[in-house]
Amino acid sequence: MKCHVVNIEDLRWLLGHTGGFRGGYVTDVQVSKRRLLDEASGREVPAGTTVTVVIRYRIHQMSRVAKLTMTGVTDFSMFEQEGADCSTLGVIQAELNEGKLRFWFDPQGELYVVCEEAQLEEVAAPDLEPLSLEQVAQWTFQSGMPDWPTVAWMLAELDVAGVPCVWRATTSSPGRHPAIQWEGDLIPASMQGTANIAGVHCLLYGPLDGPGFGMVLRVRGIQDRRTGQVLSLLADLIARRFSGQCLVGNTIIPGEDWQNWKSFEQQRRTDG
């Protein structure tokens, strides 16, 4: 989901939609300064500052990762005194004053941004069993498209790709989030019958924040080569077939950039 914030109505929507990011925490802050060549002087001159803040928070039984990109920044402060931590949020404060957006991300004002406009990008999913990054490989996708992936489509595509799988549906529980449409595990056919095989857990949910759907692919514990292959291949198939945004860790990636981002990360790990 993407939304531009340029006027007071947009700002009210942002604070209402996010609940002011109550109880969330900042995972990343990035400052980018553009410079352009001034042909008259032959020198590079400042051409704008952008500040990006990534926030993880929960609202309405949904876990959300939001990237707030603030452009045309005219004032920015990030100051943590000894022992202080401005990453933990209460409720952010924001206002529109003299055509400028002002954001206070913590009560002490240690993370503060004044900008001309902002853009919210967000990926949300129902709360799942909390696991550390060492315990789980997870890929989330959110799309505004009205048609959703089906189990039959996934099985057919994996079969064509030469990685046939079988489907093991998860029984619905009374406390399951109402947005969840279906969930279950994809087990590589070559591993069928093997003891203690979790496979790739797939969960489809929607509609959420308007039309469309979201999907979570998850492998718990140490990845077997074959389950890792299924997760990677299925993520590629979904990102190619549907327009939307991918989420890996705290990074939101446009679906059309997924392949390039994955190749870059694989190369970075190889070089490292």
Rank of each mutant, 00 (worst) to 15 (best):
P174S: 08
T150L: 08
D159I: 00
T150P: 10
T171G: 03
T170K: 02
W153C: 04
G184T: 10
L155C: 10
V163F: 14
A156I: 00
R168S: 08
P164S: 11
V160L: 11
L158W: 06
R176C: 01
I180G: 06
P178D: 10
T171H: 03
C165S: 09
L158T: 07
T170Y: 01
V163P: 00
W167H: 12
V151K: 12
M154L: 15
S172Y: 01
V163H: 12
S172I: 00
D159M: 06
W153E: 14
V166T: 15
R176H: 01
V163I: 15
V166C: 11
A169V: 05
H177L: 03
A152N: 14
P164H: 09
A169M: 04
A179D: 04
E183G: 01
G162A: 06
G175N: 12
S172P: 01
Q181K: 15
T171L: 05
V166K: 10
P164L: 07
L155G: 06
A152S: 14
G162R: 11
A169I: 02
A161R: 13
E157N: 10
V160F: 14
G175C: 04
A169R: 08
H177M: 03
A156G: 05
P164Y: 14
S173C: 01
G162Y: 12
V151F: 05
P178A: 09
V166H: 09
T171E: 13
A156T: 06
H177Y: 04
D159C: 07
V160P: 04
G184L: 07
L155N: 09
C165Q: 08
R176W: 02
S173I: 01
M154S: 14
W182V: 03
D159A: 11
T170I: 03
W167N: 10
T150Q: 14
W182M: 01
M154R: 03
M154P: 02
G175D: 13
A156H: 09
V151W: 06
A152M: 13
E157C: 03
C165M: 12
T170Q: 10
W182A: 00
T150C: 11
A152V: 12
A179M: 05
R176P: 01
V166W: 06
A169W: 00
G162W: 09
T170D: 09
A161G: 04
G184P: 07
I180P: 03
V163W: 11
I180Y: 06
D159E: 12
P164M: 08
W182D: 02
T150R: 15
G175H: 07
T170E: 11
L158H: 08
E157G: 02
A152P: 03
L158A: 06
I180N: 09
T171Y: 00
G162T: 06
G175R: 10
E183H: 03
A179I: 02
V163D: 10
P174T: 03
V166G: 14
W153Y: 13
W167M: 13
W182N: 01
E157W: 02
P178T: 07
V160I: 14
G175P: 01
A179Y: 01
T150F: 12
W153K: 11
A152R: 15
W167Y: 13
T170N: 11
